[in-house]
Amino acid sequence: MTSNAISEIWYTRCPVPTPVGLAAQLGFLEESFRAEGVALKSIIDSPDRSIRQSHFNHTLDWSFRHGGNVPPIRARSEGRKTRLVGITWTDEFQAIITLPGTGIKSTRDLKGRRFGIARRPEGIVDFMRATALKGLVSALSLEGLELADVEVVDIALADSVLESQEGPSLFRLKRRQAYGDEIASLIRGEVDAIYVKGTAGINVANLVGAVQVAEFGFHPDPKIRINSGSPRVLTVDELLAEERPDLVHRLLESIFKASAWAEAHPEETRRFVAREAGATEEQVLAANGPEVHRHLGLGLQPELVEAIGHYKDFLRDFGFLAADFDIAEWVDHRHLEAFARRAVA
């Protein structure tokens, strides 16, 4: 046992399908760390803004994060001392939508039209903008089109990502509906098409009776599917990775236990994912498909690492990073390899 005793660990996850989210809901995470005398504390639920900010910039020592990959990639590009210890790939609905009457029926019809992408103020990395931009580039590439073939229209938002989660609640809800500003611009006729994804995207598309121009979240080419949520990354800060690998082992133990539980409980898993995402089970089924319970694992296979590298390069090329860095130097295989050896033993 290490002499570096700690009493608490900070953690955070995005409200999307992840094995960490499932492990938290099932009580596996708390149970596993309690056995080591360590309390888990939620970053995103903290009343302290400086702590909540770590959900987006990974500043806290003794912490781990599982979710969308833009914030941790950006944090690494800023010099944050973190380790990428696992990757989960759960495909999800990704689409370009428009409204009836625009005359846009296929991606080719986007040529010369106005495509709306929200832009938030500088500060916290604008991961929603990066996501929409990658979705647009992917869709256009399938028809041999480029970004220059459409007119990208900024939908200016007043609040940063962090600030948007701190205002007064609307109708006693914790968060505002995703894509609300984009949909409003679409309805007002300020833009001709937008990008949406996941359960939130499928919900608003259904709400306004949108026309689906293209859907590519399940496209056979992984480079088309790659985006902020496909795949998602598990990262830990350097202190935790280097000084308490036994606790990283506990984390992995909880995750694989949750993954195995999901495989054996498909209907219950869909229910848990719906609760995590603030969605209905029907929306989860539509957005993630009937096999979501089989896609909550964790690994560092070459194709997963390559996917993160591909998206990192996209973020670099479009100005979302502070500096470039080597993905291979970020990936830390030691913990999964050690866990596998212990599991076999």
Score class of each variant (00 low, 15 high):
D61S: 12
E78A: 05
D91P: 05
V70D: 11
F56L: 00
R80G: 11
R76H: 09
D48F: 06
S63F: 05
G86M: 05
L84R: 01
A75H: 05
F56R: 02
K81S: 15
W89D: 15
I51K: 02
P71M: 12
I87L: 11
R52V: 02
W89R: 15
W62V: 07
W89G: 11
W62E: 03
D91W: 03
G68Q: 13
D48I: 13
R80D: 05
R76N: 07
P71D: 01
D48E: 12
F64N: 04
N57A: 02
T88N: 01
F64T: 07
R65T: 08
A75R: 07
P72M: 01
S50L: 04
A75D: 10
N69T: 12
A75M: 07
Q53C: 14
D91C: 01
I73A: 08
K81L: 15
T82D: 13
L60F: 09
G86W: 03
D48N: 13
L84F: 05
T59N: 13
R65W: 09
R80Q: 15
K81F: 09
R65P: 07
R83E: 04
W89M: 15
R76T: 13
R49Q: 00
W62R: 07
S77P: 05
D48A: 10
I73K: 03
N57L: 08
V70R: 02
N57E: 12
S54T: 13
G68S: 04
I87Y: 08
T88K: 06
P47A: 05
H66V: 03
A75Q: 13
S63W: 08
D91R: 04
G68M: 10
T88V: 11
R83I: 10
H66L: 11
T90Q: 12
K81A: 15
T59M: 02
I73E: 01
E92R: 08
T90W: 09
P47C: 04
R52M: 02
R49G: 00
G86Y: 04
S54I: 10
T59V: 11
I87D: 14
T90L: 11
S54R: 01
R65N: 02
D91F: 01
G79C: 13
R74Y: 14
H58W: 12
S63Y: 01
R76P: 07
R65F: 14
Q53D: 10
N57G: 09
H58M: 15
T88L: 00
S63D: 09
D48G: 02
N69E: 15
G68K: 02
P72C: 03
R80S: 14
L84P: 04
T88G: 05
